[in-house]
């Protein structure tokens, strides 16, 4: 009988495939429409940009059904990002920061609608309302080594418009994001962490109105499970927290562009910004 049970278990077990990531459909239609409806000539009065210098936004990516990348047989991305976020939160709180997290459990706790998980646009909304001095989107991967830091792939804009297109709201903040990236990179290099810095287009970073970075944690050796090493994560979190202490005195909001500036628009109706090299 035991053999029968064994065979039945084998049949049912082997028939399954590895769970794949299930991405929740993000609310992309409205932002697209919003960007298409952005007027080229804006007439509303600009509101001053405020930054809460003691607020840091942490976004542990994925969560719930969206497990993120499978780092090893026993490790998925959503758990690593949450673990790193907790370490960062405690270190930042000890340094006097107020930390806003988009989720502090496996599933996001504040769905946009009853029963629905947080979308990427929901996360961007939380970040933009916090007016944080820095927004860190935490990811993890099994490939590469050390830490991968990315700022938005958008071309830097000279300033912020009174009404920003949702999909390019980060453009005015790209110079600040690059400075933040340089600060974190210097701190991580001092700590002996292998580092890759570049630009990338990872939603929702392009929609954030704060100095924003995509922070991807990779293993520190050939073993993918080394990404779970508590000492390794703590060393990285310590470096980031120390760098952010200096950063809060340096962060500056982008200048406000005149409300009557007329910018050319693309064929899709989006405001076409001047191409400036970072």
């Amino acid at each position: 009988m035991a053999a029968c049970v064994l065979v039945l278990a084998t049949l049912t077990g082997l028939g399954q495939t590895a769970p794949r990531k299930s991405l929740q459909p993000a609310a992309v239609s409205n932002p697209h429409k919003a960007s298409q409806q952005t007027p080229a000539v804006l007439s509303s009065a600009p509101a001053p940009i405020q930054i809460n210098r003691i607020v840091i936004l942490l976004d542990p990516a994925h969560g719930g059904l969206d497990t993120g990348s499978r780092i090893s047989d026993a490790t998925v991305e959503k758990d690593v990002t949450l673990s790193l976020a907790f370490k960062l939160r405690s270190l930042l709180s000890a340094r006097g920061f107020a930390v806003v997290m988009t989720r502090d459990a496996d599933s996001p706790t504040e769905p946009s609608a009853a029963g629905s998980p947080l979308t990427l646009d929901d996360r961007a909304g939380i970040a933009n309302h916090a007016h944080a001095a820095a927004c860190l989107l935490l990811h993890a991967t099994g490939s590469g080594n050390g830490v991968h830091l990315y700022h938005s792939d958008l071309a830097a804009a000279p300033g912020e418009l009174p009404v920003e297109p949702w999909l390019t709201a980060q453009a005015a903040w790209v110079p600040q994001s690059q400075r933040l990236e340089a600060q974190l990179a210097a701190a991580l290099t001092r700590a002996g962490i292998a580092l890759v810095t570049s630009s990338a287009s990872v939603r929702p970073v392009d929609s954030l109105t704060c100095p924003a970075l995509v922070f991807e944690l990779a293993p520190h050796g050939d073993d993918p499970d080394s990404i779970n090493d508590a000492n390794y994560q703590q060393r990285i979190a310590q470096s980031i927290a120390d760098a952010l202490v200096f950063w809060r005195n340096q962060v500056q909001a982008p200048i406000q562009l005149s409300s009557t500036v007329s910018l050319p628009t693309t064929t899709t109706g989006q405001v076409k910004r001047p191409e400036t090299q970072p």
Binding site: L23, G68, S69, H139, T197, S198, S201, V202
Partner: peptide, 30 residues
């Protein structure tokens, strides 16, 4: 499709450019 495998944005239009970077990862031609 929203992303390639959960991260890189596939909804946007990418400008084609020289993507060769230096060995340290920092892009020379962003």
């Amino acid at each position: 499709r929203e992303t390639l495998a959960g991260h890189a944005d596939l909804l946007r239009t990418y400008p084609v450019r020289d993507t060769v970077s230096n060995p340290n990862g920092g892009q020379l031609n962003p």
